[in-house]
Amino acid sequence: MKRRRLALAAPLALAGTAWGQASPLRLKVGVAVGYAPFSEVGSDGQLRGFEIDLAQALCRHMALQCVPVILEFDSLIPALESRQIDVLMASMSITPERLQRIGFSSPYYFSPVRMVVRQGSGVEVSTAGLKGRRIGVERGTIHERFLAEQFKDSRVLRYATQDQAFLDLKAGRLDATLVDAVIAQFGFLNQSDGRGFTFAGPDFGRNERYYGKGIGVGLRKADLPTLGRRIDGALAALRGSGALKTLNDRYFSFDLVTPKP
């Protein structure tokens, strides 16, 4: 798959207005595409996916117009801080490191993190087994930090998009790539390019030191008491009504939205 960048949404007349005051009627939502089935650009040129539908559902509940803004993943937090976008929804884990810069809503889904390798490659997914091996990762993700700190003896290659890492894995230029398991399943393993590849090793997403407590909507800290509270209320309403689970079941055969015990 190829990701396409759309032009940024036009500046709003009230873009500089705090959400606690006269809030704008539109919500600029930063997204990163190429993550089927969470967010991608379809063959018709339209955005689609679980997070796109959820963003629209949240906006409907808050009586706001949802304006998606496509960015590279590692540009999302800077765009949020510079007020190019109001929130971000891009499978971003709630981690202590990110909480130093931005705030988050309550989690809206939970995802495992796995290595993908070629079947029969004999690659052992451990620090010793991957010593000197080439591991691909998308730049700006928490996976990048995890690999840098936990796989110091491996060769970590950083990519602008996860799709580029998958291409190099298929071409034999990587021994493994670390990625959200759902993204790998739908965006690679279930596709023709992913034939002959498989998951290997443990679920690294269980390491809360790096991966936090789930995936949330990213916001500026100053907006947490206002917009953040509205988003949490909308998420609670969608969860309580069963609409969030219905949306989950539209895309997945397994439950990603029920909080972990």
Score class of each variant (00 low, 15 high):
residue 14 L to T: 11
residue 14 L to I: 01
residue 15 A to M: 06
residue 16 G to E: 13
residue 16 G to K: 07
residue 17 T to C: 10
residue 18 A to T: 08
residue 19 W to T: 08
residue 19 W to D: 01
residue 20 G to N: 06
residue 20 G to V: 04
residue 20 G to H: 05
residue 22 A to W: 02
residue 22 A to I: 09
residue 22 A to R: 13
residue 23 S to M: 06
residue 23 S to Q: 11
residue 24 P to S: 07
residue 24 P to C: 09
residue 24 P to D: 08
residue 25 L to Q: 15
residue 25 L to A: 14
residue 26 R to A: 13
residue 27 L to V: 02
residue 27 L to F: 04
residue 27 L to Q: 02
residue 27 L to I: 04
residue 29 V to E: 02
residue 29 V to L: 08
residue 30 G to W: 00
residue 30 G to R: 05
residue 30 G to C: 05
residue 30 G to E: 03
residue 31 V to I: 13
residue 34 G to Y: 05
residue 34 G to Q: 08
residue 35 Y to R: 12
residue 35 Y to S: 07
residue 36 A to N: 04
residue 36 A to Y: 06
residue 37 P to V: 02
residue 38 F to P: 00
residue 38 F to S: 03
residue 38 F to M: 06
residue 39 S to D: 09
residue 39 S to H: 11
residue 39 S to Y: 08
residue 41 V to E: 13
residue 42 G to N: 14
residue 43 S to H: 11
residue 43 S to D: 13
residue 43 S to C: 02
residue 43 S to Q: 12
residue 44 D to A: 13
residue 44 D to C: 08
residue 44 D to G: 14
residue 45 G to K: 09
residue 46 Q to Y: 05
residue 46 Q to H: 12
residue 46 Q to I: 03
residue 47 L to Y: 10
residue 48 R to T: 06
residue 51 E to D: 15
residue 52 I to F: 13
residue 54 L to C: 06
residue 55 A to F: 09
residue 55 A to M: 07
residue 55 A to L: 04
residue 56 Q to E: 09
residue 56 Q to L: 06
residue 58 L to V: 05
residue 58 L to G: 00
residue 58 L to P: 00
residue 58 L to K: 03
residue 59 C to M: 03
residue 60 R to S: 11
residue 61 H to Q: 14
residue 61 H to T: 10
residue 61 H to F: 01
residue 62 M to W: 01
residue 64 L to A: 01
residue 64 L to G: 02
residue 66 C to Q: 13
residue 67 V to L: 15
residue 68 P to Q: 08
residue 69 V to I: 05
residue 70 I to Q: 10
residue 70 I to W: 00
residue 70 I to N: 00
residue 71 L to H: 13
residue 71 L to A: 09
residue 72 E to A: 12
residue 72 E to F: 08
residue 73 F to H: 14
residue 76 L to Q: 11
residue 78 P to H: 09
residue 78 P to V: 07
residue 79 A to I: 05
residue 80 L to E: 03
residue 80 L to P: 05
residue 81 E to A: 11
residue 81 E to Q: 15
residue 82 S to F: 00
residue 83 R to D: 05
residue 83 R to V: 03
residue 84 Q to C: 07
residue 84 Q to H: 11
residue 84 Q to A: 12
residue 85 I to R: 00
residue 85 I to W: 00
residue 86 D to I: 02
residue 86 D to G: 07
residue 87 V to Y: 02
residue 88 L to C: 14
residue 89 M to N: 06
residue 89 M to R: 07
residue 89 M to W: 05
residue 89 M to Q: 12
residue 90 A to H: 08
residue 92 M to A: 10
residue 93 S to I: 01
residue 93 S to E: 14
residue 95 T to E: 09
residue 95 T to N: 11
residue 96 P to T: 11
residue 96 P to W: 10
residue 97 E to V: 12
residue 97 E to N: 10
residue 100 Q to D: 12
residue 101 R to A: 15
residue 102 I to F: 09
residue 102 I to N: 07
residue 103 G to I: 00
residue 103 G to N: 07
residue 104 F to A: 08
residue 105 S to L: 10
residue 106 S to T: 14
residue 106 S to Q: 15
residue 107 P to S: 09
residue 107 P to H: 13
residue 107 P to K: 10
residue 108 Y to Q: 01
residue 108 Y to M: 07
residue 109 Y to M: 14
residue 110 F to H: 15
residue 110 F to K: 08
residue 111 S to N: 14
residue 112 P to F: 12
residue 113 V to D: 02
residue 113 V to C: 10
residue 114 R to C: 13
residue 114 R to I: 04
residue 115 M to L: 14
